[in-house]
Write a protein that binds this DNA or RNA. Structure first.
Length: 787
DNA sequence: TGCCCTCGGGG
DNA sequence: GTGTACGAGGGCA
């Protein structure tokens, strides 16, 4: 019998004959679809009444009823396994039977059920034979059996596309594609009749047969546009799938396709990079050092009329940029690692939720241990559990700050306290700070602690292999893998500690965070007992000043503390040194210069999203941060003041005051009259400029005192003929800066924080004097001081 | 402090 | 498709 090693990319099923279809790429880098017949859906009923069983026995769609015992709600219970013919009828059964009986595991997608039951990994060796079939793939295989195989990462074929269409009437002008497979690259430029463009695009997808389709904001724009326009042109069918089926919209936001992964570059950049601005141009600049071509997309109709070739070239460039961005952030590579450790098709990792990852691990384990799999509870309002402990932070500038992190705090807590949905019990001897009881390990070892311990060991093993390896590729491989395991472990606590999930409840999540709070508070107490000033702490990290004012001694000091406070399975890791470190006394807001292990500026909680603000705001903030990081608080405050006065006096380039936002059609809004973007759009129209719903409009505030505020549209390249409300802008700037400088008078406490350290060891008097000075000059610095 | 509304990306 | 879907920021009570 022939066999193929396959990396699974997507999993689905065909209704006809109920055939499971696994799409992927082989070790030889051929595209493949694996068909498997004979697998049928099933679920469980907990101790069903006889009447239900009688009905099921008479039901022609029911294939089999089988008695079994499952561990449910803390005890073994009599259950019945119900196998039925068609996966798409399961929801009906679930709802119907759910009225009189507890139903288990009836909400697991069919293809996943299959993967779990055959315990398939992300890569499998499939035995079977080649057959004919209506697919775009190189190979169509009828599978007989699966075996394990070494994971591998084949090259994937990626197609990136972009379209340009009329703002006025929506007509698609062009679709351009950039395709990449191994070292080969292709491009396609489609233009002409709209109907032809769309149909040619379908042919291009079928011809190149990509594993991955990408582009920038294709989920939210290009894909819906193509579907919408195809309807306008009377195209009935868009067979983009590897089985010639159509795109399916999931949850209003995402798209799925049989055999191909839709990986929107925008979403992935958002997730992986969190850029402060998300436009393609900005992201291309920061990631690739490239920019878009010189076409104004807000005037696409004129541009098209003027120079078609230029617009087509612009369109192709955008497709290429999206492709390069996706490659740059290496999401496919990382996703393959995460798919390997969570044993899932790559698609589920890229487009699925974290609970999908956890399900994959946990449901298999539950099945093996005859533990009932509850269904996801649909709760409207989610009951919030108390989160991590956040230590209060005194305002001030601190020096040589050591940051220590609890290594895998939540997993450690779960393991050491045997926290699990299988161990929660009134009879338990482990009592959480919230009073919830869990059986101890001797009585019943929890599933969750078991899995997490295994993952932790796996990660250590991979790390060891990485350390032993001499080969660069191998080192990279192991590094990706250990990172993926870390991500997976974090996903566990994410799901268990903070939200509803099929296997947990707020009591369990609340217990986990309560234990964690207890841990960190204990460490803070112990550190303080050693006369160390703990500056800050959040969930699993503590910040304290080193008594030394140089890097080497500080590093040794931090290491020593980390080692000493690691005990009982909880490890405190020395993570970084900050010099200096500043906070104005608000939790979760601070700035620091990381000087070890690598140099970078760390800003938390102060970031401004450019789209929500005008340029001057972030400019001002950055300038002030720069001074603070130079330890010149005087200068920082001075800069802040000057900036505000300049704005109040109108000494500022007008473009720095422009606020932009998109505007939908007016009647879309609840009360359009109060919205600045609507006001700007209306005035823009009155001035004789075009406004199309969805367009981005720019404006400047001319009277911020009125409610709603008065704004005037700003048209780039044209002189602004109104007077900006400089006081309004000065106030906004002051408000932004006051977030940092409104340290109520750099009070004694804030000074002490630094002074103590320096005088204690008789060093660095200059620095404390500098602080004294600030204390004298800035009694209280508030909004009024700026005005 | 907490709830409600809006937006981002794209043309 | 045996299914679930963001997250930050501003305004306002």
């Amino acid at each position: 019998m022939q066999y193929w090693d396959v990396r699974i990319l997507t999993a689905s099923y065909a209704r006809e004959n109920v055939v499971i279809e696994l799409y992927g790429r082989t070790r030889e880098e051929k595209s493949i679809v694996i068909r498997y017949e004979g697998f049928r859906p099933y679920f469980y009923l907990v101790d069903p009444p006889k009447s239900i069983l009688d009905d099921l026995k008479k039901d022609g769609n029911v294939l089999k009823l089988e008695d079994c015992t499952l561990f449910v709600d803390g005890e073994d219970k009599k259950c019945v396994k119900v196998a039925i013919k068609e996966p798409w009828t399961v929801p009906e059964y679930r709802n119907e039977l759910g009225r009189d009986c507890r139903v288990l595991a009836a909400d697991i997608p069919f293809a996943q059920r299959f993967i779990y039951d055959l315990d398939l990994n992300s890569c499998v060796r499939v035995f079977g034979e080649r057959i004919e079939g209506d697919y775009t793939t190189d190979l169509v295989v009828r599978a007989d059996k699966f075996e394990e195989c070494e994971p591998f990462k084949p090259s994937l074929k990626i197609l990136s596309f972009d379209l340009e269409n009329s703002i006025k009437n929506g007509t698609i002008y062009t679709i351009c594609c950039a395709i990449k497979f191994k070292e080969k690259r292709f491009i396609e430029r489609l233009s002409g009749n709209e109907r032809d463009i769309i149909q040619d695009f379908v042919k291009v997808v079928q011809k190149y047969d990509p594993d991955v389709i990408t582009g920038y904001n294709i989920d939210g724009y290009d894909i819906p546009t193509i579907i919408e326009r195809s309807k306008q042109c009377g195209i009935r069918n868009l067979p983009f799938g590897r089985d010639f089926t159509q795109l399916r919209n999931v949850g209003g936001r995402f798209w799925r396709l049989h055999g191909r992964i839709i990986a929107d570059a925008w979403w992935n950049v958002k997730r992986e990079v969190k850029p402060k601005q998300e436009t393609l141009n900005y992201v291309a600049k920061i990631l690739l050092g490239e920019r878009k071509e010189d076409v104004d997309p807000t005037k696409i109709d004129e541009e098209w009329k003027k120079d078609r070739d230029k617009v087509i070239s612009y369109c192709l460039k955008d497709a290429e940029l999206a492709l390069h961005i996706l490659e740059k952030i290496a999401v496919l590579n990382k996703s393959m690692d995460l798919a390997t450790v969570s044993k899932l098709p790559v698609d589920d990792v890229i487009n699925g939720r974290t609970s999908t990852l956890i399900d994959s691990i946990l449901i298999r384990e539950a099945d093996r241990n005859k533990i009932g799999v509850p269904q996801t509870k649909h709760v409207r309002k989610r009951e919030k559990i108390i989160g991590g402990y956040v230590h209060t932070i005194e305002p001030g500038l601190y020096h040589w700050v050591c940051v220590l992190d609890f290594k895998s705090m939540y997993p450690s807590v779960i393991i050491s306290n045997n926290i699990c949905f299988t161990t929660i019990s009134d009879k338990g001897k482990v009592v959480s700070p919230t009073g919830i009881r869990f059986l101890d390990k001797g009585e019943r070892l929890g599933l969750l602690p078991q899995i997490l311990e295994r993952l932790m060991n796996d990660r250590e093993n991979v790390k060891r292999k990485r350390a032993e390896s001499k080969d660069d590729d191998e080192i990279r491989y192991y590094d990706g893998l250990q990172n993926a395991i870390k991500t997976l472990m974090n996903a566990f606590y994410g799901v268990f500690a903070s939200s509803f999930y099929r296997f947990t409840n707020p009591e369990i999540g609340g217990s986990i965070t309560a234990f964690a709070r207890e841990n960190i508070k204990n460490v803070i107490d112990e550190l303080e007992n050693e006369d160390l000033t703990v500056i800050y702490g959040d969930t699993d990290s503590v910040f304290f000043s080193s008594p030394y004012d140089n890097l080497n001694d500080t590093i040794n000091f931090g290491k020593e503390k980390g080692e000493r406070f690691s005990k009982g399975g909880i490890v405190l890791e020395f993570e970084k040194v900050l010099e200096p470190f500043f906070s104005h006394g608000k939790k979760k807001r601070y700035v620091g210069n990381v000087v070890w292990p690598k140099k970078e500026m760390l800003v938390r909680g102060y970031e401004i999203r450019r789209t929500d603000a005008f340029d001057l705001q972030s400019d001002a903030l950055n300038m002030v941060f720069k001074e603070i990081m130079k330890c010149d608080l005087d200068k920082a405050v001075k800069v802040a003041r000057e900036m505000t006065t300049d704005v109040a006096n109108g000494k500022v380039p007008i473009e720095k005051l422009v606020i932009s936002r998109s505007c939908k059609s007016y009647n879309f809004y609840k009360n359009p009259d109060t919205q600045a973007n609507v006001q700007a759009a209306r005035k823009r129209e009155k001035m004789g400029y075009e406004f199309v719903p969805g367009m981005k409009v720019s404006w400047i505030v001319t009277d911020g005192k009125k409610s709603p505020q008065i704004v005037e549209p700003f048209i780039s390249g044209k002189a602004f003929e109104h007077k900006p409300d400089y006081n309004y802008y000065a106030r906004r700037i002051a408000m932004t800066l006051a977030r940092i400088t409104e340290v109520s008078n750099w009070d004694e406490k804030s000074l002490l924080a630094g002074v103590q350290q320096s005088t204690l060891f008789g060093k660095d008097r200059s620095r404390s004097k500098k602080k004294e000075r600030i204390k004298k000059t800035d009694k209280k610095l508030t909004l009024e001081d700026f005005m």
